[in-house]
Design a binder for these strands. Sequence first.
DNA 1: AAGATGGGACAGCCATATTGACGTATCTTG
DNA 2: CAAGATACGTCAATATGGCTGTCCCATCTT
Lengths: 169, 169
Amino acid sequence: MAVPSSVSVPPTASPLFLREHEVRRGVELLFFGYTRLTRAIDDGLAEHGLGRAHHRALYFIARQPDLPISALLKILAITKQSLGRVLNDLADKGLVETRTGNVDRRQKLLRLTPEGVKFEAQLFEALRSSLASAYAAAGQESVTGFWRVLEGLIPAEDKAMVIALQKDI
Amino acid sequence: MAVPSSVSVPPTASPLFLREHEVRRGVELLFFGYTRLTRAIDDGLAEHGLGRAHHRALYFIARQPDLPISALLKILAITKQSLGRVLNDLADKGLVETRTGNVDRRQKLLRLTPEGVKFEAQLFEALRSSLASAYAAAGQESVTGFWRVLEGLIPAEDKAMVIALQKDI
DNA sequence: AAGATGGGACAGCCATATTGACGTATCTTG
DNA sequence: CAAGATACGTCAATATGGCTGTCCCATCTT
């Protein structure tokens, strides 16, 4: 095992020592970066009485209009019951609407209403502003590396789903 | 730090950093990457009847032994009440202990017990395994970029705290 | 016609966060 | 030294967003 089982730390800069440090740095930066980015939209959500769970649904519906519920369930990796509550809230607020699928009439295809589009765009602006300034500060090469590392964190079985999101726009 | 641009990397970041597509890509990869990484330790935590909140505390106490509670509160950015419950759970399970500060006797300095060290190391191993393979797949230059972008997401007022974590090891 | 699939709903529970108020020990400062 | 600030603990109530289990209906597939 790569981690010493006591508090002892290798005295020299061994490969294990360096690896642990680099992994801890990544863990910490991911934690702070992710939480700070999500915090950027909390105020905008609170104005409409919504939470982060609502934003996640809103975001992916914006990204793939006419998304069936089953696809959204896979993306979010939560249960049908949890998602149901969120979608009902969004429908009640007039942000999301469903239409019956014409290929498979059992499906309900999700899309944003015009108000939903406007609200999502407003939230996205806060994300864009945060991420774009991080991108600009880091530089183009860094952004490419940022993407590549994160892609490596996604299990093979989920990768197709993520790539599908990104071929539309 | 100069990153050679000769390394051929398929989809590269365009110079138009503010483009919506690139921001959405970052948002999505951060979401999937972060959630998948945290999921890697859920089983290990569940074996001890603990959750992610417990791991976050455990992690930062491991990182900075003799951390005062106020410092941990700043790192986690949650309320004293929320942290109190988590720390009580960890103390009850014999993973964390406190000692009175000798500089300031009001402070309680947090550190892991030997069992806590062992448990944290076991959880860290799951994180290390996920992140190290993403690092290896992406390459060292990508890792540098990954760090730089995430650092850019951290607000200036929090940056000192994050850097303080990383100068110890 | 039978079974599989997509979706909806009820009931109850758990983990993790919040606010507000209050108490105690200890340190700092006028 | 007295007064106030700080570090920590705790009680009570509440919100959010997950979970399991169960049952239902409509529709598609075989």
